[in-house]
Design a protein around this nucleic acid. Structure first.
Length: 343
RNA sequence: CCGCCCUUAGCUCAGACUGGUAGAGCAGUCGACUGUAGAUCGACUUGUCCCCCGUUCAAAUCGGGGAGGGCGGACCA
């Protein structure tokens, strides 16, 4: 693969790349540039995480060295979302879930290096650099950078601001050439690019954030707005059945987005196609090899939501199935990480 | 260290002055209408009124103590 093809692979199904030229140049000059994604082990992982993780298989295929940072300290710094005592259990669960997602997406988890925040964030040179950033950055600048990521409240703690600076610094600490994450991470990595020299600042790749199933954004606090990795086929079916899904409309349509960014990319990797069962009275079954074909039928009205939903639910279940199996076969993982939910 | 304010449904809050079986909006659940969902109607559900003690026939409400949160003052060789 040449640099151009590798760049295309790295940037496909993404929301934004900063900048494509930088990435192509990087690939021309270096054999195996280094990409990283960080996750704070807070709440249970869901289908939105899966669409983001799927890309790591593309990264590996494009010849990037890939690191996943399990940012344990960040999970506590962001409004104490994870209690200090649970950081270890949640980090273990996150790593296992992420391995499962990479494998389900057709990648080999062993091609990815896992790092914990506490592996390097508690000592020099990291701490010293962090203090310099703290001294150098205004409160309003840090607040703006982290506003889409850090939990907002009337009485925010300092943790949220330190969180933002730490994540900006992680790029350097991990020696990453490319910072990857959801588009919500944009502000933080733009701060990174602003703070550091040209030869240190990261190129960025951002994944789209999928709409929630209830219309609008996916919400951590609303179980019906998203499919969890451990949802049974029946639960998935129930959630998709209840999803906001206006006929012919693509806007804010979580069901279609799940298909575009998760189901079809994974099916493509596995060599599968999507079958939509439809009663004879409405024209009989349909088979789709690509998302574009499906969207065209949906927009034209040929494909009705009531027929799409069961087919989409089955396909989603099929995609998350290996991850669900992996997690439910180790019940202690979730029980230890979320004792209040699984007692 | 001192002073003041706040704590009521999943969320935002009213009710407290003047004690009498705890409310609204949003959210949620269920029906109707759609070949899905939403929207729109219709119905329904929701409580340790932060905790303890006291006064009273009766306390979310009054008094005392405590916890958590917020704001301000003072100190600053």
């Amino acid at each position: 693969m040449n640099a151009r093809d590798r760049t295309d692979l790295i940037t496909r199904y993404t929301e934004e790349t900063v900048t494509e030229e930088e990435i192509e140049t990087l690939l021309e000059e270096r054999e195996d540039p280094h990409a990283y994604i960080g996750y704070a082990p807070t709440g249970e992982m869901h289908i939105g995480h899966f669409t983001t993780m799927r890309k790591l298989a593309d990264f590996v295929a494009a010849g990037l060295e890939v690191t996943v940072l399990v940012a344990d300290l960040h999970a506590h710094l962001d409004d104490e979302k994870s209690p200090f005592e649970l950081l270890e259990a949640r980090s273990t669960y996150y790593e296992e879930a992420i391995r499962g997602m990479i494998e389900a997406a057709g990648g080999d988890p062993d091609d990815v290096e896992f790092v914990r925040g506490t592996d390097y964030q508690l000592e020099e040179p990291y701490t010293l650099e962090l203090y310099r950033l703290i001294a150098d950055t205004t409160i309003s600048r840090a607040k703006r950078a982290g506003s889409e990521v850090v939990r907002q409240s009337d009485n925010p703690k300092l943790g949220g601001l330190v969180y933002t600076l730490m994540q900006s610094l992680d790029v350097l600490a991990l020696d990453a050439d490319i910072a990857y994450g959801g588009i919500d991470q944009r502000g933080i990595y733009m701060l990174s690019r602003e703070l550091f020299d040209d030869d240190e600042k990261p190129a960025c790749v951002f994944a789209p954030l999928l709409s929630g199933l209830t219309g609008g954004k996916m919400s951590a606090s609303d179980a019906t707005s998203k499919v969890n990795l451990t949802d049974s086929p029946d639960q998935v079916d129930e959630k998709i059945q209840g999803a906001y899904c206006p006929q012919g409309e693509v806007e804010d349509n979580g069901v279609l987005e799940y298909l575009e960014y998760l189901v079809f990319p994974v099916f493509d990797e596995r060599g599968e196609v999507l079958t939509v069962e439809r009663p004879e009275e409405y024209g009989g079954n349909l088979v789709y090899e690509t998302y574009d074909e499906l969207e065209t039928d949906y927009v034209s009205g040929e494909l009705h939501p009531a027929d799409l939903k069961p087919g989409a639910a089955a396909a989603i279940s099929e995609v998350i199935d290996p991850v669900r199996e992996r997690l439910t076969s180790q019940p202690d993982l979730l029980a230890d990480a979320y004792p209040d939910t699984y007692d």
